[in-house]
Design a protein around this nucleic acid. Structure first.
Lengths: 194, 194, 194, 194
DNA sequence: TATGAATGAGTTTTCATTCAT
DNA sequence: CATGAATGAAAACTCATTCAT
């Protein structure tokens, strides 16, 4: 994989990330990718054997970055609430910073088994990272809890992706809200007087 | 839209629902839709002005059904925990019954503002239904809580959609799990001894 | 096969026959075929599912015509020498009339098993027609003799195809020459005095 | 053309001969030729200015070899029947030994005037070699006879090329058959009793 | 209304050839 | 001489949409 450091390889991935992210797989043309990367159409095929292959590579790079950064951040935190807060912030800020690339996951090529398998693997790895945190905190049914937590974060992420007004401070508040809700439950936010 | 009750209109929607659901937007052909509906290709265009228009109609019908059924079920329940449980079951069973149509939402046409707007509207309506329940229960920040709840459900829905082994009883347990977690929080599931 | 009488089907076959015949398979473009047939590119694909499929159809029509005409002509002749002469004339005139379509057989698509099988079948049928004539004449080893005769004709056909000066009368003489040579052998043409 | 003896030049020709022969012109890639020759793609162009040029060179070398060997063999034989037998054997064995390279002649580039001219020249030379034998034997119309003889051989060659069962002994018998048929004519093989 | 034959714009991919090193 | 990364022209094929009947 010396190609990882190849500048053209990287330029293609960057161009494809931007285009797939904003237009989705089907509406991104290989010619656009080449143009944005500043190379000829044929050159893209020297580095990636097909459009699907390129999409896989883009996805892979993005997911790996997501998981690696999460690991680093979790390592610097000890308490369960602290770690859950780290996860929430990571999830929401990661997408906050990538608002432009909304469609990378939403508009993936249909019926590509390799991609489906990879996305399942990514989710599994992400979930296991959360599971580990929960298990260390003594959780029962950690898998379902992890999925639930990720689900909460993912839904709130939507507002970030689709709301052009969304600001960094909002992401901050929202991350904390989810972490608190997850730990304390809705009961803590419900006015008993009512 | 008197055509709503037109049998051909319905046949097209049914055919499109099945095909878009299993193959996604881009990999479904209008000719297939026509064939499955038992009519000629040109006839589809008498009822829907384009492929995107048809997809919109399919989506709309599905979402409206989802919301209407939810309203009915919520009307038969009074307590907050009961209503949250109803929401969870509705969400999970709705997709359990539609396992075959995984791709209706995942593989939508890109860059169609009308569809994006409609999906946002649907989410808003769904959220408002949950918000109403939460507000009646005296919740603070009901919108964020509603989104979080829906997010939890949505993530768990994935297992239903992609796990061929998933059985009805599992959906039941999972729905209850989410409702409980949402109300009591993770703290209720964490072993204090640890 | 009602399409056989379809005028568009026929127009495409005619256009393809002319183009494949003069330019060969690889250098004939589907767009050229469409243009020559006076229809749109996509329309060609309504009648033939691929370029190879079209080539097969063209080949088939040509070969069937060749064999059918031969049968008719052989039926009108009784003696062995007469029949051999008929074969020679048919072979040579068939190609004389089709000088423009030289490349139909020479430049066929590579590695297409269906085509290879069909050409083998055609040769077998042609050979069997000649074999039948020879057997009726009491020949020993009729298959090898039939192949040899066809081979002689085929080689002489080349002059017709590639010599622009070649006239109908020449074809006539040549056909008779081959028939005589085949029956009498070289010995009849060799001057014993030398 | 001092490059004739250059080992790289030869390696390219050998590689191209093998690939063009088994895959035909259009389905052989220059990169494959380079790889099989053990050199870089660009290097091929130092020796041959284009793919067609390379094909020409391969064809030329093969045809020259065919004619040279024929001359040698004919020089060692005196009688007319003996020489005709030599020709038949040479023709059939040459292809018997090259069964793998079926496509060298069948799948040539279309519309290349230089190649067409060369093949015509080759045929002319081959024919003249046969003509010379016939003239020495006192033949009338030696050109047509030569072409006929070559044609017989060529058709029988087909069985060799396409029949995987074909063995050396069969080639032997067939060569003799053709020589006899050519000299004695069909009349010699026809049962007069019939 | 209903049909389905016809259209043609649009996209991926290949591969011979070039040329800077 | 040798290399192989880069190029970009070229072509098959698809399929949403139209429209004459």
């Amino acid at each position: 994989m010396s190609s990882v450091s190849n500048p053209k390889h990287t330029a293609i991935l960057d161009a494809a990330y931007a285009l797939f992210g904003s237009g989705g797989f089907y509406e991104t043309k290989m010619s656009e990718v080449a143009e944005k990367a500043g190379i000829a159409k044929g050159t893209v095929y020297l580095y990636f054997k097909s459009k699907e292959d390129l999409f896989m590579a883009v996805t892979r790079r993005d997911c790996e970055g997501f998981l690696q950064q999460l690991e680093v951040k979790l390592g610097a935190e000890n308490s369960l609430p602290g770690k859950l807060s780290v996860i929430a912030k990571h999830h929401l800020f990661y997408y906050y910073e990538r608002k432009q690339h909304t469609k990378l996951f939403f508009r993936a090529p249909n019926n590509n088994p390799e991609l489906v398998a990879y996305m399942a693997l990514f989710m599994e790895q992400y979930m296991q990272a959360v599971v580990k945190v929960l298990v260390e905190g003594g959780a029962v049914e950690p898998e379902l809890m992890a999925k639930s937590y990720i689900g909460m974060l993912d839904r709130l992420k939507m507002d970030i992706l689709f709301d052009p007004q969304f600001a960094e401070a909002d992401a901050h508040k929202r991350a904390q809200f989810v972490a608190d809700l997850f730990i304390g439950g809705a009961i803590g936010n419900i006015n008993p007087a009512e």
